[in-house]
Amino acid sequence: MSAAGAKDAEKEADRIEPVLKRLWGQKKWDPKSVRAALLELGYEEERTGPKGERLGGTLTVRKMYPRYEIDHNVTPEGALIGLRVHDDACVTAFVQKTNFEVRTNGPFMESGCFEPPYGH
C-alpha cells in the first residue's frame, strides 16, 4: 500500500468505525442494516461484471464466512465489510454479536479487500 493510499484508507476507516460501533451497540449486525448505514455515508456498492471485472462502486457488505463446528458448517451472525479506497488500499471491517473491528490493508489477489477465509 502506498503512503497516500494508507493515509486515505485511515481517513475512511475513521468514518466507518463510529457507524459500526453504533450498530453494534444497537445489536444490528446483519448485512442489510450494515449496508444501509454505510451507504448513508455516501459510498456506492461495488458492482462486478460476469467475468469478475469491476464496473464501479467501492463498498461490499456480505455475510460472515461459514466455519466448521462439530459436524457441519455454521455461518455466524454478522457482516463483513470491504471498502476499496484506491487500487492499492482497502478498509476491511466486520461487526458481529461479540465485537467489531475496522482496519486498513492492501487488496488480496484472490479476494479483493476481503482477507481470504482459508489462508493466504
Rank of each mutant, 00 (worst) to 15 (best):
S2Q: 04
A3W: 12
G5D: 03
G5N: 03
G5V: 02
A9Y: 03
K11F: 08
K11A: 15
E12V: 11
A13N: 00
D14H: 08
I16M: 09
I16Y: 04
P18K: 03
L20V: 02
R22L: 07
R22S: 13
L23M: 06
K27Y: 07
K28T: 06
D30G: 08
P31N: 11
K32M: 05
S33D: 15
R35Y: 00
A36Y: 08
L38T: 06
L38Q: 09
L39A: 07
Y43C: 03
Y43P: 01
E44Q: 14
E46W: 09
R54A: 12
R54V: 15
R54I: 13
T58V: 05
T60S: 11
R62G: 04
M64Y: 10
R67V: 15
Y68S: 07
E69Y: 14
E69G: 03
E69M: 13
E69Q: 14
I70S: 13
H72R: 15
H72L: 08
A79I: 06
I81D: 06
G82D: 09
G82S: 14
R84E: 06
R84G: 00
V85D: 03
A89F: 08
C90S: 03
C90T: 04
V91E: 06
T92F: 07
V95Q: 01
K97G: 06
N99L: 02
F100A: 03
F100S: 05
N105A: 15
S111H: 11
G112Q: 02
F114G: 00
P116F: 14
